[in-house]
């Protein structure tokens, strides 16, 4: 099973060791709207959860995405 950090590295092309909660789209050249949707889809598949449209639109950083996952009972 992949970790959150591995998925972020793979889908958003964040270098290993640089995945931090305060990272936002401004910090990551590959965090465009389509890669973000691939990222969300992969998280859903890996952790067997579903995001709502509001959650996807309102998350502004990796930490906020993590908090949404944790709120669904997944330990990260």
């Amino acid at each position: 099973m992949k970790t959150f950090n591995q998925i972020a590295q793979e889908l958003l092309k964040i270098p290993a060791g640089q995945v931090r909660d305060d990272i936002t789209p401004k910090d990551v050249p590959d965090w465009d709207s389509m890669n973000y949707l691939f990222f969300i889809s992969e998280l859903e598949k890996e952790f067997d959860i579903s995001f709502t449209m509001d959650e996807v639109l309102n998350a502004k950083s990796l930490g906020e995405v993590k908090n949404i996952i944790k709120s669904k009972g997944v330990a990260l």
């Binding site: 691939f38 889809s41 995001f51």
Partner: peptide, 11 residues
Amino acid sequence: KHKSNAARIIE
């Protein structure tokens, strides 16, 4: 094999 309603993506 996978569907994301939020991303509107299917695999």
